[in-house]
């Protein structure tokens, strides 16, 4: 599904990713952990196509060269990013935003545009998945939402757009225990044979729920170690310093 080879990225001549390699197959859940400033968020934005990065290397996504595509083309191809800091859109209701986005995405994927009644059914169903109160659908996107509500809204949007690869950029930060469980259960319900998740996190907690297949440790712009779920447990116990020490 995703194959990243020797990826370098820099902002204003400051190198952040320094030769990153990563492979994700359909149906897999990968977790990326790492200390602050190691390049985790940069990786997610480089994958989503945010402007402002100088990028080298190769990213193949379902046999397409991702770096050739603008952000919306990547979305059409099935890539979704749950933002660490979701933005607010004044005056545009969540439902309206999702209808515009879903219509466009479906159209690009060769699917018919949903009838109003089917759309309504779908948003209610997906909102229930993350226990998002239906009143949030008519409110402007993320306006006045609490931190936890914004994160749940991201997972709701993910459910609506049905991506092949979903990147969760620190979706767990700022969530209380209940919200974390709701988000994790939502994600778990969306897991299928043919879709994949890349979960970026600082903490063990979310991974307890999600049970990732593979855990990577990102330090100083490179994957320093890859292992199974037990690697996350080890990190929780020892911190990152022992790995950093190995780097030096």
């Amino acid at each position: 599904m995703l194959e990243i080879t020797d990826l370098h990225a820099s902002v204003d001549d400051k190198a952040i990713l320094k030769g990153l390699n990563l492979q994700i197959r359909p149906g897999e859940v990968h977790a990326i952990m790492g200390p602050n400033g190691s390049g985790k968020s940069t990786l997610s934005h480089v994958l989503a196509g945010r402007p402002g990065y100088e990028v080298r290397g190769s990213i193949q996504f379902n046999k397409r060269n991702l770096l050739d595509l603008v952000p919306e083309e990547r979305a059409w191809a099935g890539l979704f990013l749950a933002f660490q800091y979701p933005v607010e859109i004044p005056g545009v209701s969540n439902a309206n935003f999702m209808r515009s986005a879903l219509n466009q995405v479906r159209c690009q994927r060769g699917l018919p545009v949903l009838e109003a009644s089917d759309f309504l059914k779908l948003i209610r169903e997906k909102a229930a998945l993350v226990q998002l109160d239906p009143s949030f659908l008519s409110r402007p996107v993320n306006m006045g939402f609490s931190g936890g509500e914004k994160k749940r809204n991201e997972i709701f949007q993910m459910a609506m757009l049905d991506p092949k690869l979903a990147i969760l950029d620190e979706t767990d930060s700022g969530l209380d225990i209940d919200a974390l469980r709701i988000v994790a259960e939502g994600v778990t319900k969306l897991r299928r044979e043919d879709n994949s998740f890349l979960v970026i996190t600082h903490y063990q907690r979310l991974l307890d729920h999600l049970k990732p297949d593979i855990v990577h440790v990102l330090i100083d712009g490179k994957i320093m170690r890859t292992g199974d779920y037990t690697l996350a447990l080890e990190l929780e116990e020892k911190g990152y310093d022992w790995l950093k020490a190995e780097t030096v």
């Binding site: 989503a48 919306e72 059409w76 933002f83 979701p86 935003f97 515009s100 986005a101």
Partner: peptide
């Protein structure tokens, strides 16, 4: 803001 456009584009809007 560029970030607002980027957010919308990430959701599939041109």
């Amino acid at each position: 803001e560029e970030d607002l456009l980027y957010y919308c584009q990430q959701r599939g809007l041109s």
